[in-house]
């Protein structure tokens, strides 16, 4: 079957035998965007989190056929080196990653949270950011999430 969607702003059409193939596999293995990671494949860890029409989705558990006509954003499309997304900026400032494997998923989940809630409390963070980091970078991550909220708000005030 053919599935057409935009990914990081680019129109994309793929031909795939099984429309139930996880979007994660398509993103990584067909579109060669390796930033989105495979952790558990069971929607349990969040390493594969990306956005579909602005909503955080665990792409290991998202059939590619559901992406038809939608807009997908991966970590590669969140910001650029020159113009990082506030979440990426905050992550750099707080030197959050250790091994780094889980981090794209966390950053995508955080970006989705800030879209809905620009000033999340610790409780909001606990409720919404439920990915898993085996290196336990949670303390730095929490600081970075609050910092990203600050950066987002100051960007909104100046624009």
């Amino acid at each position: 079957m053919k599935v057409s969607f935009t990914i990081n702003g680019q129109a994309q059409s793929i031909e795939i035998e099984d429309g139930n193939t996880p979007l994660l596999w398509v993103v990584r293995d067909m579109l060669d965007l390796k930033g989105t990671k495979f952790g558990c494949g069971k929607a349990a860890c969040g390493a594969c989190t990306l956005h579909v029409d602005g909503e955080a989705v665990r792409s290991c558990s998202y059939a590619v056929k559901f992406a038809e006509g939608k807009s997908v954003t991966t970590i590669e499309g969140l910001g650029t080196r020159e113009n990082p997304h506030p979440v990426q900026q905050a992550w750099v400032e707080h030197v959050v990653p250790q091994c780094g494997y889980c981090q794209p998923g966390f950053m995508m989940a955080t970006a989705a949270l800030l879209e809905k809630n620009p000033n999340p409390t610790d409780e909001d963070i606990d409720n919404n950011i439920i990915n898993v980091c085996r290196c336990a970078t949670y303390v730095r991550m929490r600081k970075a999430i609050h910092r990203a909220a600050e950066l987002t708000q100051s960007a909104n005030q100046t624009s």
């Binding site: 139930n20 069971k42 909503e55 989705v57 558990s61 059939a63 879209e115 809905k116 409720n127 919404n128």
Partner: peptide
């Protein structure tokens, strides 16, 4: 959460879609 659908940015649909997913078991 809100509206019986989980939290603001982590909703039921973050993981559950409109069909069973045999790849993930969700």
């Amino acid at each position: 959460g809100e509206g019986n659908l989980g939290y603001q940015a982590t909703t039921c649909n973050t993981c559950h879609q409109s069909e069973n997913n045999d790849y993930s078991g969700v």
